[in-house]
């Protein structure tokens, strides 16, 4: 009987297991294997390289720039979009007229594909006829070359990402807010707690599980969402907007160095695992799960 149960269990697990192995675990191991070789050139077969790919990464200025760019990109987009998401969720959760329309409006950017969003924002950022520069000109300021100026290109991307992501995270906060017990707020009101006090002592702590979830997702997104780069900057000017995943793509499909790309992929993967671990360990202690 017990054996039969075991067999059933494995049979049930099999479909998911096959898919996971075929598309996640085996490719990950293959990537690890690939990263230990030099690329094949012409008729020359690929040669075992050991850790040479990783060593050359240390000397690769573009890698480091993409790395720091990505770090700044995460620092610039994650807290802001989360803060905005929370503020918007609190607003559309309150008793205001037309809040259904407002919720929809906030969620619209999330429904658009990243490529479409990038095309819309490309128009906003265009130097001569773009929306932003027209606005600047109308108040007498000279325009900015948003995507062409190395100092402005990355912040411009961040702005668009915040616009795109905040609505998505708002939905999670909104769902969490709506699941909170209304009586708790009535009790706080009877106790004469000010709105700020209620937010600090009740709402924020009770939203911590959501905050952790959103934070992990936001950080992952900051490293894996690069669709807009293909439309807006292609990593330029002079790698000012190059992000890790885009650099991996460039190495694999533009420079045809899939082995170096494999090594970069593993570095990115390790980085993300570390980040997720740190977040869980740091915040887990402060999260109250109901």
């Amino acid at each position: 009987m017990n054996r039969l149960n075991q067999l059933y269990a494995w049979l049930m697990l099999l479909p998911a297991l096959v898919l996971l192995l075929a598309f996640t675990h085996i490719p990950a191991l293959t990537t690890l294997w690939h990263s230990l070789f030099f690329p094949a050139r012409g008729r020359r077969p690929s040669e075992f390289a050991g850790l040479e790919n990783y060593r050359s990464m240390l000397d690769d200025a573009v890698f480091w720039q993409a790395f720091y760019n990505n770090l700044w990109y995460a620092i610039g987009t994650v807290p802001t979009s989360m803060g905005l998401a929370l503020a918007m969720a609190l607003w559309v959760n309150s008793k205001i007229s037309g809040r259904a329309a407002l919720r929809l409006a906030y969620f619209t950017p999330t429904m658009l594909p990243m490529i479409a969003v990038a095309n819309i924002w490309l128009f906003f950022y265009t130097p001569e006829i773009g929306l932003f520069n027209k606005l600047l000109n109308s108040v007498g300021l000279s325009g900015i070359n948003w995507l062409g100026d190395p100092n402005w290109a990355l912040p411009s991307l961040m702005l668009m990402t915040i616009w795109k992501e905040a609505g998505f995270f708002m939905i999670f906060y909104l769902a969490a807010l709506q699941s909170l017990n209304k009586d708790i707020y009535a009790a706080a009101a009877v106790e004469n707690a000010s709105p700020l006090y209620v937010f600090r002592r009740i709402t924020l702590p009770l939203l911590m599980p959501t905050t952790l979830f959103v934070l992990v997702n936001a950080v992952l997104n900051a490293f894996k969402l690069v669709d807009h780069l293909f439309i807006l900057t292609k990593g330029g000017p002079n790698n000012a907007t190059n992000l890790l995943l885009y650099y991996i793509y460039e190495n694999a499909f533009s420079f045809f160095d899939s082995n170096y790309a494999a090594a970069l992929t593993l570095v990115l993967l390790t980085l993300l695992i570390l980040l997720a671990l740190v977040q869980f360990l740091l915040i887990e202690r402060r999260v109250h799960y109901r």
Binding site: D183, A189, V190, E191, H288
Partner: peptide, 20 residues
């Protein structure tokens, strides 16, 4: 407002703050 009325209240659901 409720807090300025000088009254206390006990709720059916107790309305305790679960994280405190």
């Amino acid at each position: 407002p409720p807090g300025k009325r000088g009254l206390a209240m006990v709720f059916q659901s107790y309305a305790l703050f679960p994280h405190l």
